[in-house]
Design a protein around this nucleic acid. Sequence first.
RNA 1: GGGGAGAUACCAAAGCGGCCAACUGGGCCAGACUGUAAAUCUGGUGGCAUACGCCUUCGGCGGUUCGAAUCCGCCUCUCCCCA
Length: 402
Amino acid sequence: MTTPDSQAALALFSRGAVDLVEQKDLAARLEKARAERRPLRIKFGMDPSSPDLHVGHAVQLMKLRALQRAGHQIVLIVGDSTAMVGDPSGRNKLRPQLSRADVEANLVTYTAQAGKVLDMSRTEVHRNSEWFDAMRFEDVLRLAGKATVARMLERDTFEKRMAANEPIGVHEFLYPLMQGWDSVMIRADVELGGTDQLFNLLVGRDLQEKEGQAPQICMTLPLINGLDGRKMSKSYGNAIAFTDTAKDMFGKVMSLPDEVMGDWFRLLTELDPAEIAAVLSGHFREAKARLGEEIASFFHGREAGRAAREAFDRQFRDKELPSDIPSVAYPGSWPAEGLALAVLLREIGLCTSSSEARRLIEGGGVKLDGASVNDPNARIPRPTGELLLQAGKRKFARVRAG
RNA sequence: GGGGAGAUACCAAAGCGGCCAACUGGGCCAGACUGUAAAUCUGGUGGCAUACGCCUUCGGCGGUUCGAAUCCGCCUCUCCCCA
């Protein structure tokens, strides 16, 4: 392992971090590790309850990537046991329990996706059921006894829920303890998480100390918001997923608010700070396009990133039609008196219901062969060739009679 | 254990026997304007239907009524106060 000198190492860790508890501990730990010629064990927990990663996760993963390249040992914890509790962060509702099979399936997806950012061959992966399944009730009680109710209520989400008269399950108090226990079990030197994780990370620190271990350094990185300004989450439909196409990634980046550009560049690209500053001082559309290209390229390669940008420019800047309009055949028979446009839109999947299609038509959002249609009852005669349909800004299809 | 309050569409929150597919705000979708940004303005926001209209929905199950989100009973869940 090649250990950078302490100053540079410290800078590498703390760049972009919101909380770092404690910085001096980290400096000392780095120093010690260097003397012992061992890497630091960096812990990061993943929730296996939803299968796909998105760029919100990438904030953490990019940091882990940098640390991994600096020679540190990344330890991913798959929280299959904690998933049974449901992290009280952010969401206020309990999650459904997952079956073993679901967890395993998600785990496969997760590690494959994380592999786009990390070198998984050098990454340690654990399920926390490895130790929690072996616990007896007595052990659980002992763990629960390591924290007080008052301490738990300090957590802002619990505090808010109490204030809002919302229910809190007693078992939810166990979540931070479980996460903290993971740190004890893997002897973490550092734990990384989003800013909403600070409380959980600190509990790990306490537990390690109680168990006679050196308490872990807790580091949080900003949470990035999704396309609509809320916390990025797949269930909100506002995420840029690892599995999105290059074109989708680019398009989604272009619809981000200007204000978040700086954070996104810093947290999600590997451009150096000087270059980021230069890009941000130019025109914002340009900066945003650069960001979109960087992100799309990271996941899909340079060529795909560039192509996504070009396709976008053609479609939206130059108002040309997209190059990849799906061509579909209307599955049913085409009535002699013409097919209701609303039904057609539904059947080919441009709208989810004919009611929605009618609303869209009335709102002027539907174009047939480039011309707006405003009659929700419009009937379309059976076409000889292909019809070009557009629903809203970005949904297109070419249709022919089946 | 005792007493009180409450459960309405994605979220918040009105409605308290017919005028309710259900006020309003947020979110979201669409249109105008743009840089597919923000801000602003406009329209829309259960499903089916060319249309008259029909169907499903107000925690769950029953009941009263010509008619219930609204009244009654039971059940489930939540919060508050007291112990």
